[in-house]
Simulated scan of single mutants.
Amino acid sequence: MMHIRSHLLSAFAVAGLFMSADAVDSAARAQASSCADGQKIIAERRSLGEQFQKLSNGGKDKKLDPRAACGLFTKLAANGDAGVKWMTENKDWCQIPDKVFEDFTTEHKRIQTVKGQACQAAAKMAEMEKRAKQQAQQAQQGGLAGKMGGGLTGTLSIPKGAL
C-alpha cells in the first residue's frame, strides 16, 4: 500500500511540475505577445508618419490644411497614449531602453501640443467659413447691399455739388 501511495505522490508531483511549467510557458507567451503589441503600435505610428509626409508634400509645404492636420494629429496622439501606456507596463520585460522611452514620451507631448494648435486653427477656419456663408446669404437678400449703396459691386455713389 505504501508503495502505491509513493508512486501516486510522485506522479502528482511530476504532474504539478508540468502544470507549473505550462503556467510559466503560457505567462512567457503572454509577455511575448505583449511585446508584439508594442510592435503593432510602432507600425501604426510609422504609417501615420507616412500619411503626414504625404499631407505635407514630403515636408516641402510649410502650410497644411488645419482640418486634415487636426485629424492626423488626433490619431497620432491616440497612438502615443497607447504607446506610453504600453511602454510603461512592458518596459522591463520587453527590454526597452530608458532613452527610447524618454524620447517617445517627449515626442508624444510635442504631438499633443501641435494637435491642439491644429485643431484650434481648424475650428477658427470653420467659424470663418460659416460667417462668410452667412454674409453671402445676407448680401443676396439685400441686407448689406442695400445699406451700403450697392454692396460689394465696386460702385459707390459720391454726392455731387459743393462740399
Rank of each mutant, 00 (worst) to 15 (best):
M1D: 11
H3T: 15
H7L: 11
L8N: 14
A11G: 11
A13W: 09
A13D: 08
A15F: 09
G16R: 04
S20H: 02
D22W: 15
A23G: 00
A23P: 00
A23M: 01
V24K: 10
D25P: 02
D25R: 13
A27L: 13
R29Q: 15
A30M: 15
G38C: 09
G38K: 03
Q39N: 04
K40W: 00
K40P: 03
I41M: 02
S47L: 07
L48N: 03
E50S: 15
Q53F: 13
L55K: 06
L55D: 07
L55N: 06
L55V: 11
S56I: 12
G58L: 03
G59V: 13
D61G: 02
D61M: 03
L64Q: 01
L64Y: 00
D65G: 00
D65W: 00
P66S: 04
P66I: 03
P66A: 02
A68R: 05
G71Q: 02
L72H: 01
L72Y: 04
K75I: 05
A77Q: 09
A78E: 14
A78D: 14
N79E: 12
G80H: 08
G80I: 11
D81Q: 14
A82M: 12
A82N: 14
K85E: 14
K85F: 14
W86T: 00
W86P: 01
T88F: 12
K91D: 01
K91R: 06
C94N: 07
P97D: 08
D98K: 15
D98C: 09
F101K: 02
E102R: 07
E102W: 09
D103E: 10
E107Y: 02
E107M: 09
E107C: 05
H108M: 08
K109I: 07
I111W: 01
I111F: 01
I111R: 08
Q112C: 10
K115P: 05
A118Y: 06
C119K: 05
C119A: 05
Q120D: 04
A121C: 00
E127C: 01
E129N: 11
A132G: 10
Q134A: 11
Q135T: 01
Q135N: 09
Q137R: 09
Q137D: 10
Q140D: 09
Q140F: 04
Q140G: 07
L144V: 08
K147P: 13
M148T: 15
G149D: 10
T153W: 02
T153C: 04
T153P: 03
G154E: 13
T155G: 02
L156Y: 07
L156N: 08
P159S: 09
A162S: 08
L163W: 02
